[in-house]
Amino acid sequence: MKLTLKIWRQKDAKSKGGFETYTVEASTHMSFLEMLDVLNESLIREKKEPVAFEHDCREGICGACSLVINGQPHGPWAKTTTCQLHMRQYKDGDTIVVEPYRAVAFPVLKDLVVDRSSFERIIQAGGFISVNTGQPQDANSIPIDLDTASKAFDAASCIGCGACVAACPNSSAMLFTSAKVAHLNMLPQGKVEAQQRVLNMVKQMDLEGFGRCSNITACEAECPKGISIENIARMNREYWAASLGSEKIA
């Protein structure tokens, strides 16, 4: 099938970007990224610069791939990353608009590649349990209720791709931040520093320039791992409880 692609091209972070139009011949069995590979291969043959996009595992778990495809982060399939989106979705003659994530906290580095290091700093602010190597007791000495373990797992399955920020009309990072807060704070191991964690991580999230959550739920709708906004509610209550009900400050 023949497709028309409108792709955002931008030389580097400082340059101004714009859309360019390409046509590509694709097969329905390809993944979306394989279709871009085909485009790039043909651009290289013409001695033109290929389109830069991030990708790695191509099985939906590393979180490297991004892209806003026809207005949706990771494209139209629910709970699917761009790398797992297949061209079965499209038909001959379709036009596909491909853009990078848009958020000041995710500046464009080149073409479709954005800098997501703001997420790194949010994790560094408190997204861990302070335990040194070699300290722990036997793993089974901490029984954990099945539902709690499975909820913690669901929150922890975040792949850090940033689709939540890209989808949010406010460019808020609440789903990402809350998923980590919820994962750690609901486990007994993480409770020890739960209050400090939520205070520090929210502080860092604000510093990075993300927008404010207004519960639009676009993040939940577009999250390739289906992470729930229940985590946001949890972070909200833990934050005000820690701010008002403890002596801790961020």
């Binding site: 349990i129 335990v131 070699g134 722990p136 007791q137 089974n140 029984p143 954990i144 209720d145 191991q189």
Partner: peptide, 22 residues
């Protein structure tokens, strides 16, 4: 064995049984 202990302490949400054991 130390690895499992370490991972659990870090908050790795391993699968569990109804009694809360791994």
């Amino acid at each position: 064995n130390n690895i499992i202990d370490q991972a659990v302490a870090q908050g790795v949400p391993f699968a569990r049984e109804y009694g809360g054991m791994l």
